[in-house]
């Protein structure tokens, strides 16, 4: 029986194997697991409940670390092959360029999901009994956040011609989307003296995958008053809307990455 997409399957497994030996990815993932477990332990010792301490702390932690792990996983996907002179070899295999991009994403995405699973799994094990189920609700959105940044990293990778340039870009993106974006929104509110409408602010918040992740989970963990307490009087998209936003964030950069690679008339 002929196996469909043999190159894609082999490449996805190959990518996964390679990523699980990437020192940077391992170090950041281990640090995330360590800190997440510490948060779980702290929540347990403080005898607080998951909605008050463990959950929001893990959301904050994951929103910092997961994009970093994901960008580290994605940024060299294409440009790394080019620098190693293996892109031509890879693309000389009987597969389309889109298949190559997708396979790389799948392999790296599974590695990311494993890193998230280990990190949040550690927190769940360390947390008080009964909290684990609530914390398990974090896994899906955290993986979605990570896949988004893997996808963004891969887009950067297919647009750049040097690995160092791609690394600089993704670090700048990480700072921009994880730190400065919210500051920018605050600055916008201050500068306009609050004249910007709630709807606009809500769109801008959920327009950033990190913002979407934070507000969705904080609202789910701490209840409807969590966001107004933080000064964000915004209404969140429905669950379907949120799923659509995540899909757009994951697939958009990925499709663009495939298109960029396919449209290149000359590759080396």
């Amino acid at each position: 029986m002929r196996i469909p997409f043999p190159v894609g399957r082999a490449l996805a497994l190959h990518e996964l194997r390679e990523r699980t030996r990437d020192r940077w990815v391992l170090v950041i993932s281990a640090l995330f697991a360590l800190l997440a477990s510490a948060v779980g332990l702290y929540g347990r010792s403080a005898e607080g409940n998951v909605t008050a301490i463990t959950g929001p702390s893990l959301v904050t932690l994951a929103s910092l670390f997961v994009p970093l792990v994901a960008l580290a996983l994605g940024y060299d996907a294409i440009v790394g092959e080019r620098e190693r002179n293996t892109l031509g070899l890879l693309l000389s295999l009987p597969a389309s360029r889109v298949e190559v991009v997708l396979a790389k994403f799948v392999g790296r995405g599974v590695a990311l999901a494993a890193a998230v699973g280990v990190g949040l799994g550690g927190a769940m094990l360390a947390a008080a009994q009964g909290e684990a189920r609530t914390l398990a609700a974090l896994i899906g959105p955290t993986i979605a956040l990570g896949l988004t940044f893997v996808s963004v990293g891969m887009l950067v990778s297919s647009l750049t011609s040097r690995q160092s340039t791609a690394a600089s870009f993704v670090i700048a993106l990480w700072f921009l989307l994880v730190f400065f974006y919210d500051l920018g929104l605050l600055a916008l509110l201050v500068a306009t003296d609050g004249a910007v409408g709630d709807g606009t602010i809500a769109s801008l918040v959920v327009g950033n995958p990190t913002g979407l992740y934070r507000v969705t989970l904080l609202s789910a963990l701490s209840g409807p008053s969590a966001l107004p307490d933080l000064g964000l009087d915004v209404s969140l998209p429905s669950s379907t809307g949120r799923a659509a936003l995540w899909l757009a964030w994951i697939l958009g950069p990925l499709v663009l990455s495939g298109l960029v690679l396919s449209a290149r008339r000359a590759l080396r």
Partner: peptide, 21 residues
């Protein structure tokens, strides 16, 4: 050509073998 440094020689060749069936 520069293959992934962390993989063994066998893993590198096995990938290309698997990709070509």
């Amino acid at each position: 050509v520069a293959f992934a440094e962390s993989l063994t020689g066998r893993e590198v060749v096995a990938f290309f073998a698997s990709a070509r069936g």
